[in-house]
């Protein structure tokens, strides 16, 4: 496990204090997050589980700076995110984290390479050349060296999701958020994606938060947080991790 800095006391990556998120539908108020307090340290690998509608995605959107809490405090890498402007949130999304979606959310007409380049286009300081180089590195990291010029339609679900992971990785953020990344995948592809995420945690020291419905996926993580009705009902460390950790790398993928 690696940390940001060896000398100073590491700040938690995520620190939520009494965070709520309410949705008003007519006169009815849905409490999607109902007072969440949660700390996730650098290098953790966390599964969020819970029944449908329990607020998992709402939490991820908040952590991903796509949404803001109705009340409470959210401190990301030591910076209070609640109350940031729309532009500042975009900056935070761009620099501090990578987001992996259930439905991949790739641009359908763009190649894998240019999909992975996308986040770099919205942050200054990259030439076309350095953008492509970074995108290639990220695609290599997820074992897609052979797929640079493929469009999403020409790839399997597992490959598309790995492009999604490469896009989340391309700016080398410390935090990767994944909302049901295996939700649309078969068992084999799911396994690959989960191994990929584990490798990012084990090898690259990235902090990983994964929402999942799959108990096996949850048990492969180091910590499991269970949600119900917008509240945390369980938060435990996984002591007995069933799935063996394979160091997922380019060579093993390329030789397949």
């Amino acid at each position: 496990m690696t940390t940001n800095s060896l000398n100073s006391v590491p700040v938690p990556v995520i620190e939520l204090t009494e965070v709520t998120r309410n949705f008003q539908i007519g006169t009815h108020v849905v409490k999607a997050l109902d007072g969440i307090s949660l700390t996730i340290e650098q290098g953790e690998m966390v599964a969020i589980i819970g029944p449908s509608g329990s607020g998992k995605s709402t939490l991820m959107n908040t952590l991903g700076c796509l949404d803001q809490p109705s009340s409470g405090r959210f401190v990301l890498n030591g910076q209070d995110v609640s109350g940031l402007s729309d532009n500042q949130l975009a900056e935070t999304r761009s620099h501090q984290l990578g987001f992996v979606f259930q439905s991949y959310n790739l641009l359908p007409r763009e190649t894998a390479l240019s999909n992975v380049e996308l986040p770099l286009k919205y942050s200054g300081g990259y030439s076309g050349k350095s953008r492509r180089a970074a995108a290639r590195t990220a695609l290599d990291r997820v074992g897609l060296s052979e797929r640079y010029d493929h469009r999403p339609m020409q790839m399997s679900g597992g490959e598309q999701q790995r492009v999604g992971i490469a896009r989340a990785l391309v700016k080398n953020p410390d935090l990767i958020l994944a909302d049901e990344p295996t939700g649309n995948l078969d068992t084999k592809s799911s396994g690959e994606v989960i191994e990929m995420l584990r490798s990012l945690n084990e090898v690259d020291g990235k902090t990983i938060v994964v929402v999942t419905h799959d108990p096996e996926v949850a048990e492969a993580m180091k910590r499991v947080i269970a949600f119900r009705d917008g509240r945390i009902v369980e938060d435990r460390i996984v002591t007995d991790r069933a799935t063996p950790i394979t160091d997922y790398n380019v060579d093993s993928e390329a030789s397949e």
């Binding site: 796509l66 729309d86 900056e91 959310n105």
Partner: peptide, 16 residues
């Protein structure tokens, strides 16, 4: 719409 959402999610600002 979805494309716009994707671009925004990976860091595009409103003005982008």
């Amino acid at each position: 719409t979805r494309e716009i959402g994707i671009r925004r999610a990976v860091g595009a600002k409103r003005r982008d």
